[in-house]
Design a protein around this nucleic acid. Sequence first.
DNA 1: AATTTATACATAATTTTCTTATGCATAAGA
DNA 2: TCTTATGCATAAGAAAATTATGTATAAATT
Lengths: 112, 112
Amino acid sequence: MANSKLFKGSLNTIILKLLEEKGKMYGYEITQKVKELTKGELKITEGALYPALHKLEAEGLLEAEVAKVDNRLRKYYKLTEKGEKETVNRLAELEEFIRSMHNLVNPDWSIQ
Amino acid sequence: MANSKLFKGSLNTIILKLLEEKGKMYGYEITQKVKELTKGELKITEGALYPALHKLEAEGLLEAEVAKVDNRLRKYYKLTEKGEKETVNRLAELEEFIRSMHNLVNPDWSIQ
DNA sequence: AATTTATACATAATTTTCTTATGCATAAGA
DNA sequence: TCTTATGCATAAGAAAATTATGTATAAATT
């Protein structure tokens, strides 16, 4: 997509939020869900996603569970308790970020 | 700031928008203006700002002019014609980005 | 008077985070 | 049969930031 640069730094927050909503998801599912929600605008690459998932797991925010579906492996991730708390913080930061960007560039729409 | 990661990738757009509004600005002025507009939330570091300005200049989006004020050098930047056009694009992308993020994380406010 | 903070630029080393490329494997569709 | 889709993973490289360092003058503080 044209403005993929803008998404830099927001991947972790996106993952955490989706997991908060869905309960558990596997990697490929996340890439498809993001593509769907952004109407194809944001395509998360595997080279970005899997290392991000591994890191969040190493930080104790996610825990993984492998399942075999239709003879294919899926690695399901869900939030740990720590991850749930952190997600609240990250989303608050994201909201603050968007408000700040609004103040900076002041486009012709408002935030309610 | 806590969520500086989220701002990754948006520095160029911020610079272009501020210059569009102000006409011309120098580097230090940009850092102060951003700090003011974000209530201290975003502190642009010099190591990020100056290379970004140089790159935008090299791309032909900005042009620079050095002035001496109070025995101190200031390097004023302003948009070129190409830069003005590009700024329109970048702001449209930014708006699309913010709408996408909204769809993704669906906070409790709406965009009008 | 001396030191710190503010103003103003710049670059180098390092880190973070991404893209692109590669690899393996099974299932479905053309 | 070959391509696309599903599913994981890692390595090489690029991009964009942070942190550290350097130079210089002016203002403010101790």
